[in-house]
Amino acid sequence: MADHSLSRGARTEPRWVRWILTTVALLFLALFLVVPLAAVFSQALDKGVAVYFAALHETDALSSIRLTLLTALVAVPLNLVFGVVAAWAIAKFSFPGKSFLITLIDLPFSVSPVVSGLIYVLIFGLQGWLGPWLTEHGVKILFAVPGIILATIFVTFPFVARELIPLMEAQGKDEEEAALVLGATGLQTFFRVTFPNIRWGIIYGVILCNARAMGEFGAVSVVSGHIRGSTNTIPLQVEILYNEYNYAAAFAVASLLALLAVVTLIVKSVVEWKLKQA
C-alpha cells in the first residue's frame, strides 16, 4: 500500500495538469470498468425483470450457483487457515528454505490457470498417475466436485498469505516477544496479540480469495467435464448460455458475478479504510 503522507506536501504541478490527469484517469475507469458493468446489467434486464429472475431460477443455473457457493465454502476457509499459518511462520520466524516457501506460495500466480487445471488431469486423469487406481475404487475426483474444489484451492492459494506476510513483517515481533516474556502460551499470544493486529488484513485476503474462487474460469473449465446441472460453476454456466444464443440468461447469471465484484469492491474499500486507521 502506498504511503499517502508523501502525496500531501509534494504538490508542485499546476492545477490544469492535475485536472487533466484526474480526467484521464476517470475516463479510463468509465471506459474499462463502468461501461462494461452497466452493459452486463442492461443486457441481463434486456427482456425484463421476469426473464431475469426466471433465468436465475432455472435448474441448471441454480445448480451452478450451489456448486460455486460450495466450492468457495470449502476453498476459502482452507486457504484462510493455510494463509495465516504460513504468514505467521514466514513473518515471525526465520528458518532454512523460507524464501523457497515464499516462492512456492506465489507459484499459482505465475502459472496459467489452464496449466493449473491440467496438473490435476495429469494426476487424477484415467491416463494419469492416480486415475486408474481411483476409478477401480470408485472414487471420483476429476470431472466431479472434488476436482473443481482442488483446482480452485490451487489458484486461490496465495491470496491470504500474500496479504498477511507484508503486514505481519511490518508489525515485527516485539509485541509477541513481550507477551511470551510475560508468560503467555503460544496460542494465547496468537489469539490475544497477533490476531487483533492482522484482523483487517485477514478479511481483506479472504475477500480477494473468495472473489477469485467464485470467478475462476480457466482451471475449473479444464477439470469440470461440463456436465449440466452437476459440474458447471457460475462462470462455466455463463459460457454455456452464451453459446446457446440465450444472451439474456447468460448476462443474468453473469450479473451475479458482477454483483459479487461490486460487493467485493465496497467491502474492500471499507477494509482498506479500517486498515489505514489501525
Binding site: 486415475g131 476409478t135 476429476l142 470431472f143 467435464g225
Partner: peptide
C-alpha cells in the same frame, strides 16, 4: 479427450 481422461 475428456472421456479418455476419465469423464464417466
Amino acid at each position: 479427450r475428456s472421456v479418455i481422461d476419465g469423464l464417466e
